[in-house]
């Protein structure tokens, strides 16, 4: 029983399982349908995806936006850690913006970005970076409130100065929590990216989705969705691998 559970918990295995069902059902059983394309058509339409929809450039544009925003927000988080972990205007301001996510869908802000910079390719990168940084910093500031303070008390007693306590001890104490939240952030960023590119309709995988819907091209829609899922899963594995190299404590 437990082995079965482990089998279905692995994302790649799960996707392979559904793909297998899809091949069997839609290639051989429901040959005529409007729900999902036939596997053979998807396979044949791959060259269209590359040549007509310009998959490589759009793919690298979107993956680049995700990677850039994650990297820059982590770097910002690292360099601003002292100001985020002490009570000051910056931390209070970021926390209040973070709390807006409970009332305002973040993509609404993205829509304004699209309105202000309709053709800019940098606006998307900036929007995702800001969203990612506010998510991570807000999470860190909020998590600090519930932090067990044994490390801080011990450090204070050992004569460690408060700057070191915030920047070295509390920050390190919070890193495992950030590591766990990174998967959620990664997924949320992909959601924002697809919606942003879909609306802006200039570059990226969201633009391919928009085009495929306009052309009623089910096989492209299906294969691009599959590609996005596989990219997200691979991204999560890469992020976990990187974090596990650096954050080995609980």
């Amino acid at each position: 029983m437990s082995n079965k559970n482990t089998f279905f918990r692995k994302p790649f295995t799960l996707i392979l399982f559904f793909l297998l069902i899809w091949v069997v059902l839609f290639q051989f059983v429901f040959v005529q349908n409007n729900f999902l394309p036939k596997p053979l058509i998807v396979y044949n339409s791959f060259s269209d995806l590359v040549n007509v929809y310009q998959l490589p450039s759009n793919f690298f544009f979107s993956v680049g936006a995700i990677a850039f925003s994650l990297l820059i927000s982590v770097i910002l988080l690292y360099f601003l850690r002292y100001y985020l972990l002490t009570r000051n205007f910056i931390s209070e301001f970021l926390l209040s913006i973070y709390k807006l996510k409970y009332f305002i869908p973040v993509i609404l802000i993205g829509i304004f970005f699209i309105f202000w910079f309709p053709h800019s390719i940098y606006a998307e990168y900036i929007f995702l970076t800001i969203s990612s940084f506010i998510y991570l910093s807000g999470l860190m500031i909020k998590a600090k409130e519930g932090l067990e303070n044994e490390y801080v008390i011990a450090a204070k007693s050992l004569g460690i100065n408060s700057r070191k306590i915030y920047a070295e001890i509390e920050f390190k104490q919070l890193l495992p929590l950030l590591k766990d939240s990174f998967t959620t952030l990664h997924l949320n960023l992909w959601g924002l990216l697809i919606a942003y590119e879909y609306i802006q309709h200039t570059w990226g995988l969201g633009t391919i989705i928009n085009n495929s819907i306009q052309y009623r091209d089910l096989s492209t829609l299906f294969s691009i969705s599959l590609l996005i899922c596989l990219t997200i899963i691979s991204g999560n594995y890469i992020l976990k691998f990187i974090f596990n190299r650096f954050i080995h404590w609980e």
Partner: peptide
């Protein structure tokens, strides 16, 4: 110099034994 050791374990899990001590030696205001 008075040092307080709390009830819960307070050694830093991100540093090894030697680094834990060195961190204190390098950063203590005493």
């Amino acid at each position: 110099i008075v040092v307080y050791i709390p009830t819960k374990a307070s050694s830093f899990p991100w540093l090894n034994v030697e680094e834990n001590i060195k961190f204190v030696v390098d950063n203590s205001n005493f």
